[in-house]
Design a protein around this nucleic acid. Structure first.
Lengths: 243, 243
DNA sequence: GTAATAGTGTCTTTAAGACATTATGGA
DNA sequence: TCCATAATGTCTTAAAGACACTATTAC
């Protein structure tokens, strides 16, 4: 009652598309590869799944080991599995990609591997430019799929709150939508939509001064996870593939 | 430049949640297992991915081999990967589950393995009953995830047309939504929604007599794949977990 | 003061919900 | 004839889009 050694035998890895928003731009965390194959190019943080290890546990472990990110608080979900026969020149390596979202916290890029980790704006990753990174393996496809998943889920879930640190203003939250979707949203209408969705956000009663403007109310994420009806995404007003 | 033999070594399989609608009920195709483990219980069609084989190719091959279903015309998409360490008693077996949708065609349940394949109403699968099947492995979870994916995608895509043979009436299409969602939809409003979505369906100009009633117009699927805005799903009026 | 951002209010437009009503066949 | 289903039309309601306008701070 065992599986023959060669039956569907593959090496299994996890990769993580970790997204955040820095300076109003959607960014992805990449790690510079030090070894072959693809030495010197940029790759998603990830690595082999160990025996007896869960996929999500492996993804959180790799995030911590390779980038110094404490994966405890970040949103993490399975994205898709990539298994094209020759996607890795070393042999049959199948990867289960994950999507992770976090606020722009100053995280320790210390430690062994973490030194070579940095954030890249997704438009520089998706549109190869002279100053953009060269990506390893099929990671361009995985990044694109991850970004598309994030864009889609902002429409019908409350996941946008995963991109902001607590507490946050409604302006912070609106900036998340604007950065991820590459659009400008009408502030009053956005406010009405968020506040009319029970459990999207919880008012703290506090306010905070924001630049030179009226102080803004501070909120925490609410219990709701789904949006009914969905937040409608306008046609992109900015070019999503460029800066 | 090779991967150590034991680095993340697993056996890789594909499984297929093939759904159709029979007699107004959403049904899933299961195969009775002849061998251990779980001999005598029911499982999703699936099997080991061969060397140099794509995931989708493996899924279509297993469908054909195990159930006699010609997977050419059916809609097939990756669902999710299941990799809990002890989900298979034979060792570390990771499965990439797929979701497939097809019309209720009388398909050849002939051939070797196909003899033990049959359709089960999903409510009998999801709610264990005395007359329902016992499922192998973590296949109850996979079936549930597949059904939920199908229910969700009917909301924002035109995938309902994958459940009906061409040409079809708007009543046929409405029955798909009613069976998958377990609700009753208002026929005039449903008609208005479908016809006002460009590219959802294409009028053939033909009609067909349907029981004792006014003849219904016949349609083909259109080019559209997404619904904007989405088809709204009412609160379930029937119990989705029961027949 | 001005500029900038938060927040309120209102009118319009779109689309869904809830029907009533007519049309056209089969039993 | 009645019954079942398709198809059309209308009124209401929910919610988004497009603003004008006020409020409160920094400079």
């Amino acid at each position: 009652m065992t599986v023959p050694d060669d039956a569907g035998a593959v090496s299994l890895t996890v990769d993580v598309v970790l997204l955040t928003i820095r300076d109003g731009r959607l960014c992805v965390l990449l790690v510079e590869r030090g070894i072959e194959p693809f030495a010197g190019t940029w790759a998603l943080p990830g690595g082999f799944v160990t025996a007896d290890e869960d996929l999500e546990a492996a993804a959180r472990r790799e995030l911590a080991e390779e980038t110094g990110v404490d994966a405890g608080p970040v949103h993490l979900e399975q994205l898709r599995t990539y298994a094209a026969p020759h996607r890795d020149p070393r042999g049959r390596v199948v990867t289960v990609a994950h999507l992770a979202l976090m606020p722009d916290l100053p995280h320790p890029v210390a430690g062994s591997d973490a030194a070579h980790a940095r954030w890249w704006p997704v438009d520089e990753v998706l549109t190869p430019t002279t100053h953009g990174p060269v990506l390893a393996f099929d990671h361009p496809t995985i990044v694109r799929d991850g970004v598309e998943r994030a864009r889609a889920k902002l429409e019908y879930t409350t996941l946008a709150t995963s991109f902001v640190a607590e507490p946050f203003t409604l302006g912070d939250l609106r900036s998340v939508y604007e950065a991820v979707w590459g659009v400008d949203l009408d502030a009053p209408n956005f406010r009405r939509k968020v506040l009319s969705t029970p459990g999207f956000v919880v008012d703290t009663g506090e306010t905070v001064s924001v630049g030179r403007g009226k102080p803004a109310g501070l909120y925490h994420p609410g219990e709701a996870t789904d949006l009914h009806p969905a937040m409608l995404r306008p046609e992109p007003s900015r070019d999503l593939t460029r800066g």
